[in-house]
Computed example of a mutant assay.
Amino acid sequence: MQNIAVVTGASSGIGAATARRLAAEGFHVVAAARRVDRLAALVKEIGEGATAVACDVTSDESVATLATAVEALGGPLTLLVNNAGGARGVDPVASGSIDDWQWMYDVNVLGTLRVTKALLPALETSGAGTIVTVGSTAAFTPYEGGGGYVAAKHAQTALVGTLRLEIVGKPVRVVEVDPGMVRTDEFAVNRFGGDTAKAGAVYAGVKEPLVAEDIADIIAFAATRPQHVNIDRLVVRPIAQAAQHKVHREL
C-alpha cells in the first residue's frame, strides 16, 4: 500500500490542488471535506490514487469517522495536511459578529485540533509522519477588519508551535505554511458573504496573485524533504505583496 496523505478542506481551492499534487507525488490521498459531490468529482479526476471521505472538522463524530476510514485503508499514514479553514466578515472589533468569530475559531483552530488529535497516533506509528498546517500571514500581522480571522490564525499558529515542542523526539515533523494573497474561487467570496464584486476588488490591479497550485507546490516540497528536515514555518506571498498593507497594484 502507498503512503497515505490526508488533506482536509479538499473540495476546492488549496485543498483540491494539494490533493492532486500529492497524488502525483505518489501518495494515496484521502480527500476530506463536507461537500461530497465535489469530493466525488475530485477523486474521479485523480483516479485510484485517492479516496473521498465526508468530513466536517467542527464535528467530533465526523472526525472520528475520518480516522476510522483512514485506518481501514491499511497503509501507513505519513502525511496530514490541515487545510480546512476560512474567513467570514470584515467587521471591526467594535461591532464584530460573535457568530462569525465563533465559526472562524471552530474551523481554523478547533478543527485543526480535532483532526490532529485523531490522526497523530497513526502518524507516529508510521515512523515517518508529517503534519502540514496551512495558516496565513494573518497569523502574525493584524489588519483592520480582520480581527476574527487574525485572532483565529494567531491561535492556530500557537497550536502548531506548541505541538512541535510537545512531540519533539517523536518521528513526526510539524510544518506551518503561511500564505499571503492567494486568489481562489471561494475564499474571498465566502468572506464577503457571496458578494463577488467585493471579493474581486481584493485582487484588483494585482498582476499575479498566488493561486492554489502555488501553495500545493510548497506543501508538497515541505512534505517530501528528507525526514530529518523540518521546515518550521514557510511564509509565501506573491511578488506584488511585500506585507499585509503593501501591495503593488497596476492601475
Rank of each mutant, 00 (worst) to 15 (best):
A64D: 15
L22P: 07
P92G: 09
N83R: 05
Y105H: 10
C55K: 03
T68K: 15
E25G: 01
W101R: 04
D91R: 10
W103R: 04
C55D: 02
R21P: 06
Y105F: 15
A23C: 04
G74E: 10
K44T: 15
T68N: 14
V57E: 05
N108Q: 09
N108C: 09
R88V: 04
A67L: 12
V90P: 00
T78D: 05
V53I: 15
A69H: 11
V81D: 04
A54T: 13
V107M: 05
D106S: 09
T78Q: 12
G47D: 13
G86T: 12
A94T: 15
H28E: 02
D100I: 00
A87E: 09
V29I: 05
E71G: 13
E71F: 00
C55I: 06
A31V: 09
A23H: 01
C55H: 03
W101I: 14
V36L: 12
A52S: 13
L42W: 04
A54L: 06
L22D: 00
T65Y: 03
N83P: 13
A72G: 14
L79D: 02
R88S: 08
I46R: 02
A24K: 10
N108M: 07
V29K: 03
W101T: 12
D56F: 07
L66E: 04
V63H: 03
A50L: 11
V53S: 07
A69C: 11
G75Y: 09
C55W: 04
S95W: 09
G47T: 09
Q102N: 15
S62M: 11
A64L: 12
G26Q: 06
S62Q: 08
T78N: 08
Q102T: 15
A72M: 11
L77Q: 06
E71N: 12
G74Y: 08
V36W: 00
V90H: 04
R38F: 02
D37S: 13
E71K: 14
A50Q: 06
L73P: 07
A32M: 02
D60W: 03
I46F: 04
L77Y: 01
F27C: 06
A72R: 15
W103T: 01
N82H: 03
V57T: 14
G85V: 09
V90R: 14
L39N: 07
E61F: 01
S95K: 14
G75R: 11
Q102C: 08
L77M: 09
A40M: 07
V81R: 00
L22K: 01
W101N: 10
V43L: 04
A40C: 06
S95A: 14
L22T: 00
D60S: 13
V107K: 02
E71H: 13
L79N: 00
A72L: 13
L42G: 03
L22F: 01
V53M: 12
